[in-house]
Design a protein around this nucleic acid. Sequence first.
RNA 1: GUGGGUGUAGUUCAGUUGGUAGAGCCCCUGAUUGUGGUUCAGGUGGUCGCCGGUUCAAGCCCGGUCACCCACCCCA
Length: 431
Amino acid sequence: MTLSTKPLSGMRQRLPNEFNIEKYVTEILSLSSVQAGFQEYDGPVIEPLALFAAKSGGELVGRQSYCFTDRGKREVILRPEMTPSLARMVAAQGELQLPVRWFSMPLCYRYERPQRGRVREFLQFNLDILGSESLSAELEVIMVLQEIMNSFKAPSSIYKIGWSSRRFMSDALSRCGVHIEIAQEVFSAIDKRDKMTEEKWANFLLGVCKGDSVLTGKVVSLVSVESLSDPWLVSLMAESSAFEEVVKFNNLLLGLGITSAVFSPAIVRGLDYYTGIVFELMDTGGQNNRSLCGGGRYDNLVGLFGNKKISGVGFGLGVLTLTLFLETYGLIPNSVKKASPADVYVAVASKDAVISAGLLVTSLRSHGYRVMMDVSGKKLGKQYKEASRYGISYLITVDFEEIDTGKYKMKNLLDGSVFTGSLDDLIGRLE
RNA sequence: GUGGGUGUAGUUCAGUUGGUAGAGCCCCUGAUUGUGGUUCAGGUGGUCGCCGGUUCAAGCCCGGUCACCCACCCCA
């Protein structure tokens, strides 16, 4: 019986070229975080099931997780997301200086059927601020997100950061007359709005509201609101602190000129632990239906581990979904897609020249160049071909003549020019 | 978990009303070339996903099964 050449469904396996692209993406994410004063952390891949059962949302743990009983009879789970682990880490550090600004690039696991932009093992960039209740924390996090998109040279026309507030929506819905018992269902219905036509959705909502057409009409107006100064909304939300917060946050965004951030009352977010401002990053072109990034404020997560009350705000961003987004808009530079593995290829003309070639290679490497030496033992023509296929710019041939004279022939494979000189000459010639 | 689609060479795909398998690219060899890129000549490579059925005959028709892709669900 022969083994399959494929990895398990949805599991990551990347060839060097694909790896290069992923590395380009993750490095920009890390760099943007570091530039904003965030520090990197990591946590365990395997966690107790209870950590997620408490707060993540039923479906995520119930149906979409890799969980099993380990040899010590513990119920464990391959982490489907990072935030609960983060909350525990912060809760455990009594002396931590708050607020903390941390980021991470964990592999996460979800047992779902794979499709475009969704696999079972995926990198999810996470960036959080814990221990600040100020709206500045939300603002800071969105500023970083904006800076990330700028670093990828993504024009603001191709994406938007939609945001809303859970607290505001709860308040607004109850002012519309939505009974607390169906509030959760209404939330979930609102979340589905983009998935169907307006008519269909209105009908669906009518069902959730148990046929109350007046109520349905109000909810429809609410999620259709485009401006925070909409008179109907302003009068509905009179003296609402949640509304004041939303208005204040909107002004902060306007003040900073973050125009890609748009108030969108229909954004709810699926994870149960979000409490305040929530946001997500979406492709406006419709090419990538999945949100690239989702986040918001969670107030009570750290409280699971004791009496401490620490509020946090942050987001998770799928490296795969982001990469797909960048690829559909041609934002992965060619230099990344076709990165050559070396600056110089050292061709070995005969077996007896190996030692001399090796010495040359060592010397060039010590000068900081990426140098590949032939290991095929094939004739020179083939070695040229290999170097050229790798996209390597320079090729140095080593043969008896070179060994005797100490002068090497270096060919520029891009323009075909040949240069002859000593090792020092060559180094001077390399960029 | 639900629905749709596709499985033929390393890869992208053709394959007629059923008659024993084809192309481009890649790869290999040789010639040409400024020792690689160009051009030319030649070549390797396939239990047609798997199992069963119909038939004189199945890549093609039928049933089953597996795998992958896409969408829903959920979410990154």
